[in-house]
């Protein structure tokens, strides 16, 4: 054992038995939990302070957002299918599912852009009230996370097309998948806290 090649940045024997990259990803997601917890706390503090701007119940289009939330949740399913495909060494099908995941993510982001635009037209901008600031920054940062996820998915697809995904293809897909599922779960929390829990307004 002692004189074997030590190759870093790759799957290797580890002290805990957990892959390095996976451990790092879990640590990173732990950090992200605190990030979103801080943003959500801020939102909870300010959600009733709307000043003269529209109140949450006036402005939220719950059916619309429910649909886009459903789209995002479905993308977790396609992500699982992509991972399943690469487990079967079926890169072609994996690309299809990854692409589907990315497209579903893009639909969600499109919905968010539409939502933001509508809100601004209805008189709720970033600087309208503390509620509006907290709303835009919280959901905006989530949107940014989804966008990063889409870029990562598309990168995987491109790498696969150019034959650069292997070695370690499974692990790469699994890591991006972990991130993607995390971002989805955070959205479930945000959707519940922001859209579903009624406010005084």
């Amino acid at each position: 054992m002692a004189t074997q090649d030590i190759v870093l940045d790759t799957q290797e024997h580890t002290s805990t038995g957990v892959d390095n990259v996976k451990l790092a990803m879990w640590a990173f997601l732990g950090s992200e939990c605190l990030f979103f917890a801080s943003l959500i706390s801020t939102y909870l503090l300010y959600r009733n302070d709307v000043l003269s701007g529209p109140t949450p119940s006036e402005i939220y289009d719950i059916p619309f957002t429910s649909v886009s939330s459903f789209v995002l949740l479905m993308s977790s399913l396609t992500m699982v299918l992509a991972l399943g495909a690469i487990h079967r060494k079926d890169e072609r099908q994996m690309r299809v599912w990854l692409l589907a995941t990315a497209v579903l993510g893009m639909v969600f982001i499109g919905g968010q852009i539409y939502e933001f635009t509508t809100f601004v037209e209805e008189g709720m901008k970033l600087d309208t009230s503390t509620f509006s600031s907290a709303f835009f920054v919280l959901t905006g940062f989530h949107g940014a996370h989804v966008t990063v996820g889409i870029l990562l998915l598309l990168t995987l697809v491109m790498m696969s097309l150019f034959g650069r995904l292997s070695p370690g293809a499974e692990r790469k897909v699994e890591m991006i998948g972990l991130y993607w599922h995390f971002v989805d779960i955070v959205w479930v929390v945000i959707f519940t806290v922001v859209y579903l829990i009624p406010t005084n307004g």
Binding site: F35, S38, T42
Partner: peptide, 23 residues
Amino acid sequence: FAMPVIAVALFQLMFDRVWGANF
């Protein structure tokens, strides 16, 4: 666990200072 908390505070400060948010 500490860095993301200050990151949020700094982002809020940034939005207040640069884009007129109201945190």
